[in-house]
C-alpha cells in the first residue's frame, strides 16, 4: 500500500514542482543567452542607446526572476510539506485518506519520502540551472581540475578519509531533512490532540521540541567538555588526530538526528493511529 500512496502523493505534488523546475531552467537559459550577448559590443554595430538600456533592464529582470523562482521553489517545498500533512491528512481530505485500508505509518512515510524527494530534486535542479548559466566548452575539465585541487586541500593534505567524510556528509544532510520534516509532523500531530486552537498548539509544540533539542545539545556539550577535561581524556585527545575527531563529530551528529527523528516519528504515529479525531 505504501507504493500506491507514494504514487498518488508524487502525482498530487508534482503539479506544483514540475512547473517551478521548468521555470528555473528556462530563466537560467534566458540568463545564459543574455550573457552570450555583450551589449557594449552591440553599440559599435549601431544599436541605439535607448534600446540598449531596455535590454539591460530586461536582463536585470530575468536575473531577478530567476532568483525569485528559486526562492519560491524552496519556500514551496516547505509549504507543501506542511500543507500535505496538515490538509491532506488532518483536514477534510483526511476523511478519504484515513478511511483507506492503510495504516498510519504508511501515511507518514509517504508524506515524508515524497517531501524529502522534492527537496533533493529542488537542490539538484538549482545546481543544474547554475551549470546551464555557467556552461562553457571546457567547463567540465575545469570543474574536474577544481575538484582535484579542493580534494587535495581538504583531504590529502589533512589526511581526512574522503570517501568516509563524503558518505557521512550526505547521510547527515539527508537525515537532517527527514528529522526536520518529522519535527513539523510531530508538532502538527501534538496540536491535533487538542480540541481547539490546533494550529496554535502546533506552534507551541514546535517551540517546545526546539527548546528540548537545544537543551539536550547544550547538556551533551557541557558533559562532553567535563569528561574530556580529565587527564585521561586530555592525554588521549592529544594523541588523536583532528581528522578522527571530525569523524566522531559527524557520526555523533548523525546518530543524534536519527534518535530525534525516531522520537518525532513515534509521536506522530501514536497520534495518527491512536488519537485521531477529524472534525
Amino acid at each position: 500500500m505504501l507504493g500506491k500512496l507514494l504514487k498518488y502523493e508524487t502525482k498530487a505534488t508534482a503539479r506544483w514542482f514540475l512547473p517551478m523546475y521548468g521555470g528555473i531552467l528556462l530563466f537560467a537559459l534566458f540568463n545564459k543567452l543574455f550573457m552570450l550577448f555583450n551589449f557594449s559590443d552591440m553599440d559599435v554595430h549601431g544599436i541605439p542607446v535607448f534600446f540598449q538600456s531596455i535590454l539591460g533592464i530586461v536582463q536585470a529582470m530575468t536575473v531577478f526572476l530567476y532568483v525569485m523562482i528559486i526562492v519560491a521553489t524552496f519556500a514551496l517545498t516547505f509549504f507543501i510539506m506542511l500543507q500535505r500533512f496538515y490538509k491532506n491528512l488532518l483536514g477534510d481530505e483526511g476523511y478519504l485518506m484515513f478511511t483507506l485500508p492503510v495504516d498510519a505509518s504508511s501515511h507518514i512515510w509517504s508524506k515524508l519520502l515524497v517531501s524529502v524527494f522534492w527537496t533533493v530534486c529542488s537542490v539538484i535542479v538549482t545546481i543544474l540551472s547554475v551549470i546551464v548559466m555557467a556552461a562553457y566548452p571546457e567547463m567540465f575539465q575545469d570543474f574536474a581540475l577544481f575538484c582535484e585541487k579542493a580534494f587535495q586541500v581538504l583531504f590529502t593534505q589533512t589526511g581526512l578519509n574522503a570517501t568516509a567524510f563524503f558518505i557521512e556528509f550526505v547521510l547527515l544532510v539527508l537525515i537532517t531533512l527527514f528529522t526536520g520534516n518529522l519535527m513539523f509532523y510531530a508538532s502538527i500531530s501534538v496540536g491535533h490532540t487538542r480540541g481547539k486552537h490546533r494550529v496554535l498548539y502546533a506552534f507551541v509544540a514546535y517551540i517546545v521540541f526546539y527548546m528540548i533539542q537545544q537543551i539536550i545539545t547544550s547538556v551533551v556539550i557541557v558533559v562532553a567538555g567535563m569528561v574530556l577535561d580529565t587527564n585521561y581524556w586530555t592525554d588521549l585527545m592529544m594523541d588523536t588526530a583532528p581528522t578522527t575527531l571530525i569523524h566522531i563529530i559527524m557520526i555523533f551528529s548523525i546518530l543524534y538526528n536519527v534518535v530525534a527523528g525516531i522520537v518525532y516519528y513515534l509521536i506522530t504515529n501514536y497520534v495518527l493511529s491512536k488519537k485521531l479525531n477529524l472534525e
Binding site: 476523511y95 478511511t99 488519537k275 485521531l276 479525531n277 477529524l278
Partner: peptide, 9 residues
C-alpha cells in the same frame, strides 16, 4: 458514524 469509520477515536 465517524467512530465506526475510524476517523475518530
Amino acid at each position: 458514524i465517524k467512530l465506526i469509520s475510524g476517523i475518530l477515536t
